[in-house]
Amino acid sequence: MNNVVKGYVLPGLPHLVLTPDANPGWKKVRQAMDRVRDEITALDADVLMIYSTYWPSVIGHQIQARPTPEWVHVDDEFHALGSVPYKLKVDSELAHAYVEAAKARKLQARAIDYHGFPIDTGSVVVSKLINPQNKLPCVIVSSNVYADRAETLVLGKAARDALEKQGKKAVAVIVSSLSNRIHTQKTEPKDDHIHSLKDQEWNLKFLEFLKEGRLEDVSQLSRQFHKEARVNKVANFKPFWWLAALMGQNNLYAGNVMEYQPIYGSGAAVISLTPSDKAARDLEFDESDPDSYSGERNVLGGTGEPALTQEALHE
């Protein structure tokens, strides 16, 4: 049984909520987000499962479990645009099941349930736009700064486990820009553009693949994309690994690029992926597909158990 009825790739900058009319491109992205809202309303889903690249974590993977987090959000960078009041509805039961599923797959994970916890800009923006009345509850998972492909795939599979266990159907959402380099000098909305030609070309390559429903191909290209079109703030570009692991690591999707525009220099795309019987491509992939996490991050510390004993090395 496929528990994910549809997947979305959505941008999370606050311009879309606070000043969409300031630039014709921003308005188009906002209108596409409004269409996503309408699509989701018509889907047979129980929950929004959100992975946000705007929420970094260090101690494993954090999963929002507070039933109704409420605050007035201000972005660290774009505070001059204004404040965003929000009140979300979280599927706390599913969030806790997700934590347990992650632990069962040997990931470090914990539920977050604190008044005033700073929910990230991306999750707030996307929730306000595509789920304004909280018709669906959501679950939000952080993006661990040190995690790489294997760990993120396992995190996606754990989300699937939790959905299956509770018999729920989800809309999967990754909140991320494509290229994420914003303007480093004040830029008027009318002058907005993708920060560089290189970012633009890589964005277009990803959009070409996603339009054809080639989720797994994009997943396989994520490392390269990270090098070419992302500011290297974290270990790697992870959202498509999570999405592929949750929805299915293949190219069996109908892709729809609903919009693509620059937002303050970054690549803001609104994309849907609908499970399909027809494969866009059928390539062979040479990367491993781990089911549980067995990595050792303490490679410098030397206090962990050695991967191989001296005896084993000589056998």
């Binding site: 970094p56 974590s57 101690i59 977050i112 008044h115 005033g116 916890f117």
Partner: peptide, 9 residues
């Protein structure tokens, strides 16, 4: 206000 550490809440 209240400041909640996003990493160590």
């Amino acid at each position: 206000s209240i400041s909640v550490d996003p990493v160590f809440p």
